[in-house]
């Protein structure tokens, strides 16, 4: 019980240093999984859009965290490092999806975009927005989702995506403009 309390009182960075010394997934790594489970799951689900892929990706994130646990050098917050790995893992999975599947999805989505005025409820509007987001660059899409769906600040996004804050704001702004433009076209 004392060991559990001790682990709970440690900062993320202290736990990460302890986990780096462990040969297997010991108490420190288990505590880190428990702390970041929810956050990593949310990122994976938001970026991948379904439970099956999110489950797979979130597990992959923690495996990568474990295998690379000695590489955390403390230059950023541990939480930022974890979130960056989660985002990179999800972007990698999305890029790795087959061209055929993407083509089929795009064809189906195009049909949805062509008739947005018919539906008025929020669910359909959200669906249309997700469809429009699919047409963006992967990083821009992830930036918009994390900014608006998960409420990350520009500073956090800049650290996660390894961008300057101003570059991050510019990318979000341009991505928003693109979505707005395409939404306008679809409404015509």
């Amino acid at each position: 019980m004392d060991a559990v309390l001790d682990v709970l009182q440690h900062s993320d960075e202290a736990l990460a240093a302890e986990a780096a010394r462990e040969g297997s997934d010991g108490p420190a790594f288990v505590a880190l999984v428990e702390r970041f489970r929810q956050r990593v799951w949310r990122i994976c689900y938001r970026l991948l859009g379904n439970e099956h892929d999110a489950h797979d990706a979130a597990q992959e994130v923690f495996v990568r965290l474990f295998l690379h646990r000695a590489r955390f050098d403390g230059r950023s917050k541990y939480a930022t490092w974890v979130h960056a790995i989660a985002v990179r893992t999800c972007l990698g999975i999305r890029r790795g999806r087959g061209r055929r599947q993407r083509h089929e999805t795009t064809a189906g989505e195009r049909q949805l975009v062509e008739t947005p005025a018919v539906r008025g409820d929020s669910e359909h509007l959200s669906l249309d927005l997700m469809t429009l987001l699919e047409s963006l660059d992967e990083v821009d899409r992830a930036l918009l989702i994390l900014k608006y769906a998960e409420g990350y600040s520009y500073e956090e996004l800049a650290a996660i995506f390894d961008l300057s804050v101003s570059a991050c704001k510019m990318r979000v702004s341009r991505a928003r403009d693109k979505v707005q433009e395409r939404h306008g076209d679809a409404m015509k």
Binding site: S126, D128, L129, Y148, H183
Partner: peptide, 8 residues
């Protein structure tokens, strides 16, 4: 629309 992303 962007704000509604968080509602999902």
């Amino acid at each position: 629309l962007f704000e509604r992303l968080a509602d999902n």
